[in-house]
Amino acid sequence: MSDWAKVDRRDFMRATAALGFAGAAYAVSGDKIDEEVWQLDPNKCTQCGRCTTHCVLNPSAVKCLNQFNICGYCDMCFGYLQPGSRAIDTGAENQLCPTAAIKRTFIEDKYYEYIIDEESCIGCAKCVNACLVFGNASFYLQIRQDICINCNECSIAKACPSDAFEKRPISDPYMYLTGDLESTRSTPEPEPALPKDFFIQQ
């Protein structure tokens, strides 16, 4: 170790080479220097169910969400009810979800709110599928970024038959059924009050 602190010409060359090498790597990496995370495009998903089984985490980092401004708030929510269940009630045997993760709340006559409990949801897409077939397609799957460990190659992405996964910048990590986050928020315009006698005229 006699030359520990000695700096010679070859060191300069080495340093230059190293810097040049780092610089070149940086240059080719383009201007997309934001960190990236995985997300799935709910409009491409075909609800195959692999999101549950193919994530390296158990339960999966993929969860179901309800985009409320598309939801019909249906009484007969087929995303909620087992098809063929006689009674519309909250009995577990009547629920479609294998983990009973969907919570049904009465809003007003004939309208119910459906919220998915993230803790219990395993991302199986059963309800997404049902809502797509029979309802308004307001349920959708999404990688929850607080759970996902952001594998370098997402193992669901590789298995997804509909190629729904992509990498997104960390600053904009979610995808929605209708586009950007703003589009999920639209509240309906207020209903004008009707004159009481409107129905009786003529």
């Binding site: 549950t52 193919h54 098809p83 294998p98 897409a125 059963k126 599928n129 077939v133």
Partner: peptide
């Protein structure tokens, strides 16, 4: 290979 999603994770309405 990963376990494939089993029948209870599939939405099956064949009967209908």
């Amino acid at each position: 290979s990963y376990r494939e999603p089993g029948a209870n994770l599939q939405y099956d309405i064949t009967q209908y």
